[in-house]
Write a protein that binds this DNA or RNA. Structure first.
Lengths: 114, 114
DNA sequence: TCGATTGCTACGTTTTGAGTAGCACGGATT
DNA sequence: AATCCGTGCTACTCAAAACGTAGCAATCGA
């Protein structure tokens, strides 16, 4: 399995924060995990279920990354946002609100479905 | 090569807009492409350069998806945001602004780098 | 001590992306 | 007309990432 925590920022080694972020969020399941964590403290297995039974290998890798990025932490009650993570999650809320408008646009190409 | 435009929304077939979006944005290079498009009309090759010489296979697949999602379109001058895409890109601007604060947090774990 | 649950790992298979070459088309030049 | 150039895009092989299942060590309660 890969270890993205080590070789950060795919390409673009400028190290600009947005690049670090886009790189992390662009990995499979990262956004989804971040999104599902809004349910409150969630155990590894519960989170896995929320994420359509994502492979534990990947889930663990992502959680490790998110923890390294100071966005998620593990408490006795389960995985939760850090303060930073909560701020990021709020942006996802905006994204969600926007996506509702976007999805109901006229002639929506069926949201990409064919 | 895959054709995400056909089998949308990895897992979670609820089809909720946010899921469609998280799924699309969670694919490799999608966020980055969306980000780099803020440079204005960009040709396929220029965009490829902006994205650290991403493989044309992937770039094309992503652009096809983004166009299907009504976020990007191809004009004679090059690839540009649609109206919807521009709105989404604005959210990325907020994300970028936030990431600057986030990156300069005290004891930042070096932004995830080890 | 036993069972149940926790986070997490090993490992073989499948899917996805990387990397390079090159195609078909269109417009300008010669 | 023939040539060159840049456009979006595709074919191909190979490497990397993710999947899917099984199962581990640790912990807690009964």
């Amino acid at each position: 399995m890969d270890s993205p925590a080590k070789n950060r920022v795919r390409g673009s080694s400028t190290g600009r924060p947005i690049m670090v972020l886009l790189d992390a969020l662009g990995r499979r399941w990262t956004l989804r995990i971040l999104w599902e964590l809004r349910a409150g403290p969630v155990t590894f297995r519960a989170l896995r279920d929320f994420c359509d039974a994502v492979s534990p290998t990947v889930l663990n890798t992502r959680l490790k990354d998110l923890r390294a990025l100071d966005l998620v932490e593990l408490t006795p009650a389960g995985f939760v946002y850090t303060a930073w993570g909560r701020e990021l999650a709020e942006q996802l809320d905006h994204l969600s609100a926007w996506s509702e408008r976007w999805a109901h646009r006229p002639y929506p190409n069926l949201g990409g479905v064919e």
